[in-house]
């Protein structure tokens, strides 16, 4: 008789998981490694160098990329900030206002940016801005980013809110806090971990976007992804790999941060 299979320990699943990780990480690691390659022909290893990083900051293309990076940063900070405020207010309404008219609709609206395919959002935004006569530029990018950042900011914030018992706000009001004070002095500090990870998520999502930005950006306005995309059309040069590696680093730092914030929040809750 065949040995009984332990369902928790399917043979081979570890192997597939490792393959999965290799597939996910190999391209990134290889690009990072090659960004240190001291050779103009990319595919031959010519020893380690930081030249390409120097090139990113001082090379002929550096002003273009620096401007693009600055644009990306401004947009990500503003869009994440705006989306976080909007999502926080929405989360308070959805978890602390009982039933109200249009609640289901509101929930659908918050999640609408997740349901509409990116390319459709991009087309719709372009059409809309041109129809109402907005000049495409940083501002249109900012608006479009704020919209699709809202659900990403909303998710961790509302998850956090749901785990906060409303007994703390009741205690605050019992101790003569006005509803506003109960919010600012008690609920808001308790929500903070959720708000932080929500804004970090929104920030990364905004930095990540290419397609929608590409549609609504004005002529000559570039963010880092659109600038990289433009450059890649000309071929993958080492300075692109250096920029990519830098962005990779930034993303990983932010995700790790967001993860840690979430964990600290959870521990405090206990």
């Amino acid at each position: 008789m065949a040995a009984k299979i332990d369902l928790r320990r399917f043979p081979g699943f570890l192997g597939i998981t490792l393959i999965c990780l290799v597939v996910l990480y190999a391209p990134l690691i290889i690009v990072a490694v090659y960004s240190f390659n001291d050779s103009t022909s990319i595919t031959n290893w010519g020893g380690a160098t930081l030249n390409w990083y120097v090139d990113v900051f001082t090379g002929p293309e550096s002003p273009k990329f620096q401007q693009a990076a600055l644009n990306s940063l401004i947009i990500a900070v503003c869009a994440a900030g705006a989306a976080t405020c909007i999502a926080t207010a929405a989360a308070v309404a959805m978890t602390r206002a009982g039933r109200f008219r249009g609640k289901t609709l509101s929930f659908a609206l918050i999640n609408l940016p997740l349901m509409v395919p990116e390319v459709v959002t991009a087309v719709a935004s372009l059409v809309f801005f041109s129809a109402i006569g907005f000049t495409n530029g940083l501002f249109t990018i900012l608006i479009a980013h704020t919209v699709f950042c809202i659900p990403f900011a909303y998710l961790p914030i509302s998850a956090r809110m749901q785990s906060i018992s409303d007994v703390y706000e009741q205690a605050a009001m019992d101790l003569y806090a006005t509803p506003r004070e109960a919010f600012t002095k008690v609920l808001l500090p308790l929500m903070m971990p959720g708000i932080l990870s929500g804004s970090l998520l929104a920030f990364i999502i905004s930095l990540d976007d290419f397609l929608i930005t590409n549609f609504v950006k004005g002529a000559g306005v570039e963010t880092l992804p659109t600038a990289i995309f433009g450059a890649v059309k000309q071929g993958i040069k080492p300075n692109i790999m250096a920029i990519s590696t830098l962005m990779l680093g930034v993303s990983i730092v932010f995700v790790t941060l967001s993860w840690l914030v979430g964990r600290v929040g959870q521990n405090k809750q206990k």
């Binding site: 009741q170 205690a171 605050a172 500090p189 405090k268 809750q269």
Partner: peptide, 20 residues
């Protein structure tokens, strides 16, 4: 009157001390 205008105070069952 809303709770914050009533001069009564409550000891909650699970205390509800502000954790922060």
């Amino acid at each position: 009157l809303p709770p914050h205008k009533r001069p009564v105070n409550t000891v909650f069952q699970q205390y509800a001390l502000f954790p922060h």
